[in-house]
Design a protein around this nucleic acid. Structure first.
Lengths: 217, 217
DNA sequence: CGGGCGGTTGAGGTCAATCAATCAGAGTGG
DNA sequence: CCACTCTGATTGATTGACCTCAACCGCCCG
């Protein structure tokens, strides 16, 4: 599956206020649009391009031979993704919903020293987040995983107490190393404890943020 | 706890043949010796220095408020560690056994463009390993975790079919998101299936490497 | 000999997975 | 408008993998 042409591209009407540090890396390139569940790139593809999310969201996925899925990262508007250590993709990237990204040759970034500098900070913060993720998956119980996920998301999009989830329960489960049923149960349990309010599936209000944070220690 | 002086430093008598790519980053600095379980740096310390393992081994640890531990990475001879996104350590580093490292100012590496380049590759491969780790913790069962751990270790030290474990069962458990008992049981179970041979606690022969790899899919 | 430490083994409990049913909302077509 | 389906989410009952608690072993060292 390859990217659709983006001749007539309307920029997103809701540019969404971003935390400032998100805009550091300037990616100059062609805009491309992807439909929901469409692959941006797949495992084994050559890693020539890097991407920046303009609108929508992207998941980075690895799949085991028997179909078990693990999402290693979600990318939100402003995030850069697709930088790889080697020449080949070790995971695939898929759009969560209709998504617009800007595409640039990888070489165009590593050439420019300023961009390379920004890219460095980016890789390091990705590494930091990945290690947080390791801690969560290795040592936290289901409720703690969900709580930390909601808080992380809230911090990244910074939309006050209301978190708009761009992903399905299945995606949350695949990110948190749980099943869809456990995610669902845990959310209703957290609501029962008054920590969150599920306004509708994709919209959650963090009623007692401090208590959620305490869950994650 | 701070590093001991290393005035009279004997270089390790067994320089251990390393995979070539391990030697990429040239860290020029002062050698320091650490005893078993001694802290190289702790959470919250300032992140001014980077380290390269000469002999011994180091674990990178994060601890939750109630004492649950997660090891995010082991560093073996030739590995560089201690590069951080921010100015503060977000995890601590401890010697697994008597360990010698070379210490350099972080700025001395980022200044030199060649070192910076090498450092970049290093960060990216750390990121890649961290994402493998996420997959393992999120989606693999105990036997698969142990098998992938043994294979990863074997690949890194490249000592044929015999893997010398530099860490205790507790450290393995904290890396794999399991308990010490489960690690022990799983090892004996793998031995029962003829996949490995436990020669003594810290020395394991990978009897059927292909079968182990198949476990990890 | 006693005690501590790291590792192994056993018995029982628990949390999340599995299997299954139900529900709500969005299309779709008569 | 009302069935009907389809998809995503929720809820319930049961199972099972791993954790917890505890005993035990081998080894080293005082």
């Amino acid at each position: 599956m390859q990217a659709q042409s983006a001749a007539a591209l309307r920029l997103p009407s809701q540019p969404a206020p971003l935390p400032p540090q998100r805009e550091r890396v300037n990616v100059i390139g062609v805009a491309k649009r992807f439909d929901r569940d469409q692959e941006v790139y797949g495992e084994g593809d050559s890693a020539d391009y890097v991407y920046k999310v303009v609108s929508g969201a992207v998941r980075q996925v690895r799949v085991l031979a028997d179909g078990r899925r693990q999402i290693s990262e979600f990318y939100l508007p402003g995030d850069v993704f697709g930088v790889e250590a080697g020449l080949e993709r070790r995971s695939s990237a898929e759009a969560l919903a209709e998504t617009v990204v800007v595409v640039a040759r990888r070489s165009s970034l590593t050439a420019d020293p300023e961009a390379a500098q920004a890219l460095w900070g980016l890789a390091m913060s990705d590494l930091e987040r990945s290690r947080d993720h390791v801690l969560t998956l290795g040592r936290r119980a289901a409720a703690e995983r969900v709580a930390s996920f909601l808080l992380e998301l809230a911090n990244r999009v910074d939309g006050g107490d209301i978190v708009e989830l761009p992903m399905s329960r299945q995606d949350m489960a695949d990110y948190l190393g749980l099943t869809i049923e456990t995610v669902s149960r845990t959310l209703t349990q957290l609501q029962g404890q008054g920590l969150i309010e599920i306004r509708c599936c994709r919209q959650i209000r963090l009623a007692r943020r401090a208590a959620l944070a305490e869950l994650c220690e």
